[in-house]
Structures are given as C-alpha cells and as structure tokens.
Simulated assay, not measured.
Amino acid sequence: MPENEPWEYSLSIPNDPRAVTVSRRTLRLILTMHGLIGLVDVAELLAAELVANAVRHTKGPAALRVRWAAGVLRIGAWDTDPAPPDAPLPFERSADLGLEDGRGLALVRACSDLWGWQPLSRDGSRGKLVWCELDAV
C-alpha cells in the first residue's frame, strides 16, 4: 500500500546518454521502496522519455524529479534550455512522415494522465521542467 505522506526526490544527472538508464533504475528503486510497484513500468517509460529529451536536446546538466502527493506521482526532467518543448505529433503523423525521432512526448502524452512544462531555474541556471503525472487512485 502506498504511503499517504508526500515525498520528493531529485537526481542530478550529467549530459550523458547513460543518464537515462541510471534515471530509470533509480526511479524503479524509489517506487518499489514506497510500495508503488504497480506504477513502475509506465513510470520508467515516462522518465526515460523525459530524461532522454533533456540529455539529447540540451548541452548542460539535467535533473530527474519524482514527487508523490495525494495519490499522484509526478515525474519531471529539468534541463538548461528555457525554450518550450516542441508539441508532440500524433503517432500516425510521425509514422506517415517517416520520422525516426519525435515520438517521446507523444508517448508521454499517451501514457500519462496529465503532462506539461514550465520555466524553472535551478542552482542559478535558467531552464525548464517537463513533467507528467500518473494518478494512482
């Protein structure tokens, strides 16, 4: 049974493609330890897409943020680029265009209950947080 008390974790990650795997494994451990094993598979997919975008599209450091409150799991990836993310294309459109990239946020939109982005400074660096939520209730 998940805890009722809210909690939050933040993992600072370098601009390195290996950060995606580290983030996924860390998230799995966090959710397992908090009794949220039922959310692990979808949460890992969402975190991997968000962190991959942060690492791929920026040159600076990034961070994975995970928060639980009121039966909602929020997963976010902070990066140093303050520009909004490109709007996700529908899966059918990206397939029609033969795109190899650009499906990450479409997956986030399809698999989460809510998603968005907001400008956010961290340690004095401007950037943004792209986030999504999973409702566990």
Score class of each variant (00 low, 15 high):
A19I: 02
P85F: 09
A87N: 05
A136V: 03
L89Y: 04
A87Y: 01
W68H: 15
L89F: 08
A69Q: 14
T21K: 11
R28G: 10
T26R: 09
D101H: 14
F91D: 13
L105F: 15
P14W: 12
D86K: 14
E44M: 13
G35M: 06
D123P: 03
W117N: 00
A95W: 01
V130N: 02
R109I: 00
P6S: 06
L114A: 14
V130W: 03
T32K: 13
L27M: 07
R18I: 03
S12L: 11
S23T: 08
T26L: 04
R28N: 12
R25K: 14
L89K: 07
R28C: 09
L129R: 10
G127R: 05
P90Y: 12
T21C: 01
R65V: 10
D123R: 15
R109K: 14
F91N: 10
S94I: 13
K128I: 03
T32R: 15
P6F: 07
A95T: 05
M33L: 12
E49C: 03
L29S: 15
T80Q: 11
L97F: 04
A54V: 04
E133L: 02
G71W: 04
V22W: 03
K59E: 10
A95V: 11
V72L: 01
T26F: 15
V40K: 04
A47L: 01
L105I: 05
L27W: 06
L64P: 02
K59I: 02
L45S: 11
